[in-house]
């Protein structure tokens, strides 16, 4: 396969990692928590789409909207029920709780749907279109376009809107934000809602690219997206986007030129390399801890 072909494949998966990475980074930015359950929202997005289409025969657009809404509400509920009571507890308690929430969701879906992988329905025609020696499918085009549009929308939202600015203010200083009259709880809920929404879309696009779903399917893309967020500088939105694309492209090139088995190793190798050169990630500032 040609260089350009590998690059396009890399951007395809990379844009999915970027969407998912945004949720990790935004949540970390606002409550300094690695939300381990975020990867499971990917799986929920895929399963809810699957159930809506197969069991309830709704149109595709409606299945997608239902999946997004349920994931969005789940994200808010996870924060309210599991994380909010621990907001002033030691960091480690919330971290362990996040792992617990993740295991709970995975096993809940395992209980309901069983562990057998199921084929994900075809949402977009996967037949590749040939452009000279290039093979591009509608799946790739839709994934990249949707992801980039969502990222632009998020960027504008965070930079320009009042709620977006409040999110940045809360990320910097909860107390000072409250003194401005910002409702910190609402702002945190909105952050979880947006992150979960992006993860739902990411999950649907991921299942469209790799059309087989199981209750533990969120782990690998979740982990890679998390690595992408750390790579770009955790808490920094453009960092998550760049990190996602780097991960996707590195994975695609390794698969194409070296070996498929090595892809994951190379991807994590890049993480170790970047962090040893710049521990706060590509866009991270080496800020001094406030005393």
């Amino acid at each position: 396969m040609t260089f350009l072909q590998q690059l396009i494949n890399g951007i395809h998966v990379g844009s999915i990692y970027a969407l998912i990475a945004l949720g990790y980074t935004m949540v970390y930015g606002i409550i300094k928590l690695i939300n381990f359950a975020h990867g499971d929202i990917i799986m929920m997005g895929a399963y809810i789409t699957f159930v809506s289409l197969i069991m309830f025969n709704v149109p595709i657009w409606m299945a997608v909207i239902i999946a997004i809404l349920i994931c969005l509400i789940s994200g808010i509920l996870i924060e309210r029920i599991a994380y909010k009571p621990l907001r002033n507890a030691p960091r480690i308690s919330a971290r362990i709780t996040a792992i617990g929430v993740s295991l709970f969701i995975e096993n809940l879906f395992f209980k309901i749907f069983g562990g057998n992988p199921r084929p994900f329905p075809v949402l977009i025609d996967p037949t590749p279109i040939s452009l000279g020696s290039l093979q591009i499918s509608m799946v790739t085009i839709v994934t990249i376009v949707v992801s980039i549009l969502l990222m632009i929308a998020l960027d504008l939202f965070v930079k320009k809107t009042k709620t977006g600015k409040a999110m940045r203010a809360v990320s910097e200083d909860h107390g000072a934000a409250q003194l401005m009259g910002i409702n910190v709880n609402t702002t945190i809920s909105i952050t979880f809602a947006i992150g979960s929404m992006l993860a739902a879309v990411g999950g649907i696009l991921y299942s469209t690219a790799y059309p087989q779903i199981d209750p533990f399917m969120g782990m690998m893309p979740g982990l890679k997206a998390f690595v992408a967020a750390v790579l770009g500088g955790i808490g920094i939105i453009p960092g998550a986007m760049l990190g996602g694309f780097i991960m996707g492209i590195a994975e695609s090139f390794t698969k194409g030129y070296i070996s498929s088995q090595l892809a994951d190793a190379v991807v994590f190798g890049i993480l170790i390399l970047v962090l040893s050169l710049k521990p706060s990630g590509i866009f991270g500032k080496n800020v001094k801890e406030k005393v």
Partner: peptide, 19 residues
């Protein structure tokens, strides 16, 4: 002071008028 250091002067003032 606890100003929002990653936000501009204007954005800080806008946050003051958040309500």
């Amino acid at each position: 002071r606890r100003i929002f250091s990653q936000m501009t002067v204007l954005e800080n003032l806008q946050m003051g008028a958040y309500t």
